[in-house]
Write a protein that binds this DNA or RNA. Sequence first.
DNA 1: TCATCACCTGGAGA
DNA 2: ATCTCCAGGTGAT
Length: 282
Amino acid sequence: MQKNHSINLNLTINSGQVFLWDKFGDSWFGIDGQDLLVIREEPFKVIYPSKKITRFFREDDNLERIISEITKDNLVKSAVNQFGGLRLMRQEPFQCYISFICSSNSSIQNIKRMLKNLCKKFGNKIEFDKKEFFTFPIPERLANASNRDLISCGLGFRAKYVKLAAKMVYEDKLNFESLTKNDYKSALEELKLIPGIGNKVADCILLFSLDNLESFPLDRWTQRILLKYYSKIFDVYSEGTLTEKKYYELHEKIVDYFGQYAGYSQQFLFKMERDLNKKSWL
DNA sequence: TCATCACCTGGAGA
DNA sequence: ATCTCCAGGTGAT
């Protein structure tokens, strides 16, 4: 196993977790809720905010232990070796929630465009280094947004979902703090009550912002991975849409196999297979 | 419980 | 130029 466990920003940002990051010069600029994060890529250094952002990069995780727990086979082992600097991030929950609602049946570049438009229209302008950025909208702004304004951001059929989802948070009918404390299954079910959120999106929200490391989002790519490398172990025979029951059963088997940190294994395998297929991240 | 299908939108390929 | 297909799914029949 690779000894160097330092963060590789480029790998981490380009692994499908976040959408509002851009690189200018040798630094990355990212929006996380109401915060702007500025980080120099090489060598890794947090430029702003000056207080160390250990939470965002999950530096409180015991990575040694996690890596040793998820390396159940040679495939994970080689993915971990190849992408040693890849990390899961702990995003601001509301942004993550809206981002993945927007992600359904869309492409990464489209998702980025939608979210940027939302920030520009409903977020707050901030300046850094003579550059202009927009924070992510707070729940109230999106809950009160007109359908026309949301459509103008390019959300398409997702516009109504975003508005409703924001309303649920604004009215405190959905509370991220309590979701974080819930066990995996009840948190998943509660998220799925929101229109526009199914199993895959719920899993992304849980894994990327609500500290549920056993989440293992099953999308086209992860299904392809299971079919290609793990068909015997998990009894997968196609990569079509999973039924409710199959999704649940498959997740059970995955956690049995990869363990409580299955989400980390997913991230390494996902990144590996996407790169193998030369998919770009923009 | 399960299989089909429509869905906003922009970019890539025919 | 114009069209078709598809992209990290979901909800309604």
